[in-house]
Design a protein around this nucleic acid. Sequence first.
DNA 1: AATTCTCACAACCGCGGGCTT
DNA 2: TAAGCCCGCGGTTGTGAGAAT
Length: 322
Amino acid sequence: MGRPPCCDKIGVKKGPWTPEEDIILVSYIQEHGPGNWRAVPTSTGLLRCSKSCRLRWTNYLRPGIKRGNFTDHEEKMIIHLQALLGNRWAAIASYLPQRTDNDIKNFWNTHLKKKLRKLQAGQEGQSRDGLSSSGSQQISRGQWERRLQTDINMARQALCEALSPGKPSSLLTGLKPSCGYEKPATEPIYASSTENIARLLKGWMVSGPKQSLKNSTTQNSFIDTAGADSLSSEGTPDKADKNGTGLSQAFESLFGFDSLDSSNSDFSQSMSPDTGLFQDESKPNSSAQVPLSLIERWLFDEGAMQGKDYINDVAIDEDNLF
DNA sequence: AATTCTCACAACCGCGGGCTT
DNA sequence: TAAGCCCGCGGTTGTGAGAAT
């Protein structure tokens, strides 16, 4: 019954990874490809649990990861997607090339949460002082409609994807290279992995193990960001937004989404990150089995969305916030 | 100069879904 | 069919660095 245990807890090393361990892991993955994490510790001799290896690879070592500050555009995208999807960082990360869900999550928790709170506080302060917040914050009907349209498009696309297993995503065309590590039919090729290792070794030799360790565990300067396939991490929608709702609402209020009367609108309820529409977004099988709700049918009937427009809309619309 | 505080981020933990045996 | 592991996810913690006192 079942399979043998993944790894025993005894003798498993924890804490920061050393460059040596990184090299071993990268070498192994270069040879065998990511996956079958259970075999990694035993095959490589690493005293790490398979989970730790997977995490190290997906969050740090895999090619194509971009490090450093988030751009304005990325920031806006995150804010928008968080409002739309809730704290489903993996799903959000799939729309942001070269960023890991962990990075986005950290960025949200350390920067954006505060920023939005500040903005919200500022807004409340203004209205308390009698300054018409509606004057500055209220968006024109045209803008609001456009924003609504982009959200409809996004929801529709999510639904299409959910109900079309195996079909490559067309959402955010040209912007979503990280939408999944496409497992190649043949042996995977990690174009930049060799280079990564070479750089790692080089840096390690030059600066010495100690310095290199620091670099490796804090800067990851040897990672090639030139781009390669990245790992897939479609979100698990069933774990829908738990604590992001309040902030989402704050965001929505900032953007004027609350101007839509949610009490009598099926649409707005369906658009809420907490409600069902997105919860099956990446579950083709289960979604296909349940009958379509009114809103889902309506979204489906509209046909394919124009994904590119979404990006433009987001970029344009959210310029108003910052 | 020493201590405390704050921030940023890497890594760990626990859970749920799905798969394997 | 059921037991139990693997994988991926989101939440949380630990820790080092820099700022403030």
